[in-house]
């Protein structure tokens, strides 16, 4: 059963008519083939028109789509012998961030990423992808391990943000994020980061300060969620009951194309027509190809060269290519 987003209603209607006709095709002897193919062409065009003109707020809902591929789907589709490793070795295990070594297209690679979960049970288990300090400290541990075994690190980002809870604060959420970012920047292995869904604030950047930063076409990456931004900067309008999150999404320029233009990311990985959720398998392959290329480009650099490249890349953000 496909979940349609609000703005996909006209597409949903067309597709349900096509389904109805298919049903008739079997039961009656009327020839509906022509009508079906006519509607299919129309539906494809509508889908393509809609998805090439998504507003940033619509992209936000695509990025959060319940059927969008998650970390575990990429691991299953792209790797062999993935061994999930658990725990930060000082307090606990946080399943909002999953990670471990695996074989990926002929190489050993360390995969780290946020996992939001798919159903109620797994969402609770993964805390909806909002990590606590233990998650970031586990990520640090895995990055250090990768460095020791000269393995590239691939991080897949998909989080609304780090978890704002009492225990998380108590155990040093800010310190964990800061140190994880520092680890990314000082890593002697290639680090390739892909924003696959939501790149929410510090909780995202903590594992995304890579040599190569990419985004899936309809993913978003922002300093605060559109809702959070609206509640602070549009306080009056929000208090009157107006939803200003769409305005905040527009103003903050959170789409992949914006970030490429601002020089914050290096590459956009295009999604299948109608978004990643329409063709999960193709999305996974495309991400795999982009990651493989990036690893190939970086794997011959020395640890020092990798650190230097990363540092220059981040120092150039805002200095180069802005009006």
């Amino acid at each position: 059963m496909r979940t349609y987003l609000d703005f996909e209603k006209p597409i949903a209607e067309l597709e349900s008519r096509i389904e109805d006709l298919r049903g008739m095709e079997k039961s009656a002897d009327v020839n509906v083939n022509d009508e079906i193919s006519r509607l299919e062409v129309k539906a494809q065009k509508l889908l393509s028109d809609t998805y090439s003109n998504l507003t940033r707020w619509q992209k936000t809902s695509v990025a959060r789509h319940a059927q969008r591929p998650h970390f575990c789907d990429y691991i299953e589709g792209l790797t062999e012998d993935f061994t999930p490793l658990a725990g930060d070795r000082s307090f606990g295990e946080d399943e909002a961030i999953v990670g471990g070594p695996a074989r990926f297209r002929g190489r050993s690679v360390m995969f780290i990423g946020h996992e939001k979960g798919r159903d109620t049970e797994s969402r609770l288990k993964h805390n909806f992808g909002s990590a606590r300090p233990e998650g970031y400290r586990k990520a640090i541990r895995l990055m250090e391990m990768a460095e020791r075994f000269h393995m590239p690190v691939v991080s897949l980002v998909d989080t609304a943000g780090a978890y704002p809870g009492l225990g998380a604060e108590e155990r040093g959420q800010a310190e964990a994020i800061a140190t994880c970012t520092e680890k990314c920047l000082g890593l002697g292995s290639p680090l390739i980061s892909v924003i696959v869904g939501e790149g929410g604030s510090g909780g995202a950047v903590a594992i995304a300060a890579g040599n190569r930063v990419m985004m899936l076409e309809h993913s978003i990456y922002s300093v605060i969620s559109p809702e959070g931004c609206a509640s602070i900067l549009w306080r009056d309008a929000q208090a009157r009951g107006d939803n200003k999150a769409p305005d905040a999404a527009e103003a903050m320029k959170i789409a992949a194309s914006d970030l490429l233009e601002l020089g914050v990311i290096d590459q956009i990985i295009s999604e299948p027509l109608g978004g990643a959720h329409r063709d999960v398998k193709a999305t996974i392959e495309r991400l795999g190809d982009a990651v493989e290329h990036a690893i190939h480009d970086l794997e011959d650099l020395s640890p020092e060269e990798l650190r230097k490249q990363r540092r220059e890349k981040f120092l150039n953000i805002g200095r180069v290519g802005l009006a």
Partner: peptide, 22 residues
């Protein structure tokens, strides 16, 4: 915290200032 009016460029000051500390 971050200056929301500078969007992602504000967020990027987290890694950039971390480099300064390094």
């Amino acid at each position: 915290g971050a200056r929301m009016q500078e969007g992602i460029l504000s967020l990027m000051q987290m890694p950039r200032t971390t480099i300064a500390v390094q």
